[in-house]
Deep mutational scan, measured.
Amino acid sequence: AIERGSKVKILRKESYWYGDVGTVASIDKSGIIYPVIVRFNKVNYNGFSGSAGGLNTNNFAEHELEVV
């Protein structure tokens, strides 16, 4: 089962992080479509409006993740 702290591989082909491994930061139990927040070591794009980097978290559905 996917739980907080799990290392997961991203299976969503259109994702910037496809094939990468991230760490589960949290799981939303409220029934939303993409409840699993995954944190990565790298950012997906340069930040804007003065922020240092881009996003390094993204929401995924459990079926888009594979525990490694």
Rank of each mutant, 00 (worst) to 15 (best):
R39K: 11
G47C: 15
I27M: 04
A1V: 12
A52Y: 10
E64D: 03
T57M: 13
V67Q: 05
E3Q: 14
R12D: 03
Y18P: 00
V68F: 06
E62M: 14
N46K: 05
V8R: 03
K9E: 01
H63I: 07
S26L: 08
V36S: 00
V8Q: 01
Y18E: 02
I2Y: 04
V38F: 01
D20S: 11
N46I: 08
E66S: 06
I27F: 08
Y16G: 03
G22T: 03
N58M: 15
A1H: 11
F40Q: 00
A25S: 09
P35F: 15
F60H: 02
V21W: 06
R4M: 09
E64S: 02
E3S: 14
E14Y: 07
E3F: 13
S15D: 06
S6P: 04
S49A: 11
S15I: 03
I33V: 11
P35L: 14
P35G: 13
R39I: 13
F48P: 14
H63S: 10
I32S: 14
G50L: 06
V68G: 01
K13P: 08
I10C: 09
I10D: 01
L55I: 14
F48N: 13
A25P: 01
G47M: 04
I2A: 03
D20G: 06
V36T: 00
S6R: 06
A61N: 05
E3W: 10
E3L: 13
S6T: 13
L11F: 02
K7P: 04
F48S: 14
V8W: 00
I33D: 11
S51T: 13
S6I: 09
I2D: 01
I2F: 07
V38W: 00
E14K: 06
G54M: 07
E14A: 10
N59I: 05
G31E: 13
K29T: 13
E66D: 04
P35I: 14
E64M: 03
E62R: 10
N56V: 10
K9A: 03
V21C: 09
E62G: 05
R39G: 04
N58T: 09
L11P: 01
S51K: 06
N56F: 12
L55K: 08
I33Q: 13
K7E: 05
I27E: 02
G31S: 13
W17K: 00
V21K: 01
N44M: 14
G31I: 08
F40G: 01
K29W: 10
E64V: 03
V24S: 00
S15N: 04
E64T: 02
A61Y: 06
N41E: 12
I32Q: 12
V68Y: 06
N46T: 08
R39S: 08
A1R: 13
F48L: 12
I2L: 10
T57L: 07
L65Y: 01
D28F: 05
S26N: 09
K29V: 11
K13V: 13
E66P: 01
G22K: 01
I37N: 06
S51C: 15
T23F: 09
V21D: 02
E62V: 13
V67N: 05
A52L: 10
I10E: 00
G53L: 10
I27N: 02
E64Y: 03
S51Q: 11
G54E: 09
V24I: 04
N44F: 15
N58G: 15
S30A: 08
G19D: 06
V67C: 04
S30Q: 06
V24R: 00
V21Q: 03
N44P: 10
I2W: 03
G19I: 07
S49E: 15
V67M: 07
S6V: 13
P35R: 14
K29A: 08
E14S: 14
A52P: 11
N58K: 05
S6Y: 13
N41G: 09
G53E: 14
V67I: 11
E62Y: 15
G5H: 04
G53I: 11
N59D: 05
T23S: 03
E14D: 10
G53Y: 06
I37F: 09
G53C: 15
G53P: 11
R39V: 14
L11E: 00
T57C: 15
I32V: 13
S49F: 11
G47P: 13
A52S: 12
K7S: 08
A52I: 11
I33W: 07
A25Q: 14
K42A: 06
F40T: 00
Y18S: 03
N41Q: 13
N44D: 15
V67S: 04
Y45A: 15
Y16W: 06
N58F: 12
I32A: 12
I10Y: 02
A52F: 11
R4Y: 10
L55G: 09
I2E: 01
V36E: 00
F40E: 00
G50Q: 09
S51G: 12
D20V: 13
A1N: 09
G54R: 05
G54F: 10
K7V: 10
S30V: 05
E64N: 02
V67G: 02
R12Q: 03
Y34A: 07
I33Y: 08
D28R: 06
S15E: 01
A1G: 11
V43K: 10
S26E: 12
V38R: 00
Y34D: 06
F40L: 03
I37R: 12
E62C: 14
K9W: 03
I32H: 10
F40H: 01
S49C: 15
I2V: 07
L65I: 05
V36H: 00
S49D: 15
H63V: 09
R4P: 14
E3M: 15
D28A: 08
N58A: 15
V24N: 00
V67Y: 04
N59W: 10
G53N: 09
F60R: 00
N58E: 15
L11T: 03
S51R: 02
N44Y: 15
S49P: 10
V67L: 12
I10S: 02
V21L: 07
L55R: 08
E14C: 15
H63N: 07
R4D: 06
A52C: 15
I37K: 13
L65T: 02
V43Q: 07
S15T: 02
K13S: 06
K7T: 08
I33M: 12
E3A: 14
G53M: 10
G47K: 05
T57I: 08
L11N: 02
L11S: 01
S30W: 05
I10L: 03
P35A: 13
K29M: 11
H63K: 06
E66F: 08
A25V: 15
N58H: 14
Y34T: 05
T23M: 07
R4A: 12
Y45M: 15
V24F: 03
V36N: 00
R4N: 07
I32M: 12
Y16F: 14
E64G: 01
R39F: 14
K7G: 02
V24T: 00
R39A: 08
E3P: 06
V38Q: 00
K9P: 02
G47R: 03
S49V: 12
I32E: 09
G19V: 06
E14V: 06
V24Q: 01
A25I: 15
R4K: 12
T23P: 01
V8A: 01
K9D: 02
Y18T: 03
V38M: 01
S15W: 04
N46E: 15
G22L: 05
W17E: 00
A25D: 13
Y34M: 08
F48D: 15
G22E: 02
Y34N: 11
R12H: 02
S49I: 11
W17A: 02
G53H: 10
